[in-house]
Structures are given as C-alpha cells and as structure tokens.
Design a protein around this nucleic acid. Structure first.
Lengths: 210, 210
DNA sequence: ATTCTACAGTAACAAGGGTTACACAGACTC
DNA sequence: GAGTCTGTGTAACCCTTGTTACTGTAGAAT
C-alpha cells in the first residue's frame, strides 16, 4: 500500500504524513459499478483515490440523475471532505467507474492533520479548488452546450478515465448520465457515427476522435 | 468598522483575529452595479462581505453569461479564496448587486492566519462547503428546472438579497442572467403575471408570491 | 411639441430535444 | 428451434425554447 500511496501522493505529502496515512488508513477495493457513497449517507471517512476512477452523480427529488464529474488517482472527494467537516449528509452519489483502490481516513485524523501538517492543509485547499473548477466546467457544459456536444465530451471523458477508446456502455446508461432519454442518445450517436467520430457496436462505443 | 465586522463575523472569529482583520483589512465601498472582480483578473485580496450583496457571474468564450449565485453578509467569495491560494486567474465575475461594504484582506495574511487561528481555518472550510452547496443548487436549477421555474426562483432570490419585493430590473437584464433571450423572458413574465405571482411595471417587477 | 431611445408586448416561425410507438437483432434459456 | 429479454434504429408527433420582426409606449432630450 505504501508504494501506491507514494505514487499518488508522494510529491505532495511529507514522509511523516505518508506513514501516518499508512497506519490509520483503511485500504478498500471497490468493484466497477459498486456504490461507494449514497445520497443522504452520513460520511465518517474520507477517501483518497489510489487507483481506478469514481463517478460523482447528482440526483433530484424526482430521481432525475446527472453526472457531475469523474475522480482519478490522487483525487479526493471534496464533497465528502466538506461533509466530514460539516457533519452533514452527502449531497451526491459516488460510484466506482472501474475497479478502484482507495484509502479511507477517519475524520478525527483530518482535524488533527489540518493543524499539524502544512502539506495536508494545502492538499485540502487544492482539492477544494480543483472541485470548484470541475463544477464550473460542469455548469458550462450544461448551460452553454447542446446535447450533441455534451455527448461527445461525455464519450471523450469516459474514454479517458477508462484509459480505453472503446467504452462499454448502453445508450440507456448514457441517457441517465446526461439526464435525457434513450431515443435522443441513439439519434445523436448515429449522427456522430455518420460524422466519423465514433463507431457503434452493441453494448460498446469506440471513440475514434479523441 | 469593528462594529460591523463583529456583527458579521463576531460569532465565528476570536477577538484577536477580529482585531487583526481590523488592522490589516482595507475597507471598501462599492456602488450597485460596479464590477469588483473581472474574469481573468489576478486576485491579490480576499473580500469579506460586511453589508450589501454581490452577484457572481460565469461567462464563456462567446460572451454568454450566466448568474451563478449571490453572496450576502458574512460570506466570502470561495472562488476568490481559491484563486488567492492557487495564484490563478479568476474564473468568475463579481458585481455589486446593491451598495456594498467589504473588507479586503491581503493574501499573505491568509496563509498566516490559516496556521494561527483555528476559527479562520473553520471559516475557510465552511466557506468552501457553502460555495460547493450553492454550486450544486445552481446545477440543479439549470439541469432539472424549466425556464419558467428558473425565472420564478430568480425573482424570489433577487427580491431576497435586495430585501425588497419590488425588483428594479429590465427583461433584457434577466435574459442575460439566465442566459436566454429577452422575448422568452417577456413571454414567461406575462404568464407569471396572469397567474398572479408577480406584477409587472416598466423597469421593475413586484414579486407577490415569495 | 417633436424626436429619440430604451423597454415591453406579441405573432409567426424554426429548432432542439422529449415522448410514444413499433420493428428488429443479438444473446440467452428451455 | 421457439420463446424471451435486452439493446438499438427510426418515424411521427409535441412541447419548450430561441429567432425574427413589427408595434406601441414611457420617458428623456431637443
């Protein structure tokens, strides 16, 4: 575990902090598709992402869903962070996008480390900053882009976090993530295929224009 | 200044910190409509809002605008905060919604206070938390609501931050804030008036249903 | 009073995207 | 091989929102 911890965070954290994380952190493996945090959960651990990818979803009262962004190696969930500190319920859902390895840190340690380690403070601030930027990007996407552009961006992002230009996904799943209907997605995907940007197969899509 | 500082932040900050702010902070008055931060600005001061209200806008490359949220007394701009710490350019525009009184804190102090005062750390974390929630709310609004609902919410929010159920605004200005066209707004406003939720006058709107 | 300008009302039309309905194809079960 | 289930393709239709165009009017400027 220490080796992966160093790979992901070694440049940022002091050795002393790394070894503390190594001691108190709880290593967990999450299979692709498994839910890590559900909306309304009280969050008592903060995740550090060692390997894999996590997708962060929003859902309103009517059950309408929307993909917010992906987390990758070296990220943490600033939402969760925020929940830990404020002792509030999670406002988002976190689902493993692929097989994922995380270290869970108990919240008690967070307070402690915040006073003790400058590198930890910087990491937390940095995480908030990244997350705010990511949210701005999400807002830009839904406010300023049409569905065909959003779809193309979605496919490119998804290919990137899965490190594979062929994505295993159904049209219905895309429709959920982008908060639209399956028919709309099928229609637009066909158009993108005719434009030569992707190739469609059953249960998967190859993104040729990355 | 100290009195207003205490009113706005007295319950959160230690006396020692309050008096430090009082010493190094730079009190500023901004008239309604004036721009406080422009997109692309390098931000070297962090604002604490004593009185008034600030609206935070996003703009894309094509000049399309969108209102993100309002700041009120006791708030700070977490975006700015984020920019200060990361030394990056502002990704948003801040405009005084009404006559506003703020204290500007030089960024050097921020680092210092973060190690020195627990209350300051908590305030910063709390601000980030509030801002993330606010952004989620914005996303919900544009992702899940129709234009008529968004418009009604806009009018209610605006009435609230201006502490007046009569809002001085033109249809065109609303169209900019909601990133749509003037005709659409006029159409929907008329419908809201027929539903008895608002009363329309030239250059102003009275919100009867708050 | 006349002119100018910004603001508001409204009609007619276009486009994007959501809905319903149905056909068909691959994959799996029995 | 027949039946079933899930995923995909597509047409037809509708609603919301965006666009263009024109009218009227309040208020300021002259």
């Amino acid at each position: 575990m220490l080796q992966q911890l160093e790979e992901a965070y070694g440049f940022i954290f002091e050795d002393e902090l790394l070894s503390e994380i190594n001691q108190v952190g709880n290593l967990q493996f999450v299979g692709a598709g498994e839910t890590i945090i559900e909306i309304g959960d009280y969050v008592k651990m903060m995740p550090l992402l060692l390997e894999g990818a996590i997708k962060i979803m929003r859902e309103d009262k009517d059950g309408d869903e929307l993909l917010l962004y992906f987390l990758e190696r070296g990220d943490t969930c600033a939402m969760t962070l925020s929940c830990c500190l404020g002792q509030t319920k999670s406002e988002i859902r976190a689902v493993a996008e692929r097989d994922t390895k995380i270290i869970m840190i108990p919240i008690e340690k967070m307070e402690e480390w915040t006073s003790k380690y400058k590198s930890w403070r910087n990491f937390v601030f940095e995480s908030y900053h990244t997350r705010l930027s990511e949210m701005l990007d999400t807002i830009d996407t839904i406010a300023f882009m049409n569905m065909d552009q959003r779809l193309m961006k979605y496919l490119q992002d998804k290919a990137k976090v899965n490190q594979n230009e062929t994505i295993a996904v159904t049209h219905q799943q895309i429709a959920y993530d982008l908060h639209t209907s399956r028919v709309v997605i099928s229609r637009l995907l066909k158009k993108l295929e005719l434009d030569g940007k992707i190739k469609l197969q059953r249960n998967s899509i190859e993104v040729t224009e990355l």
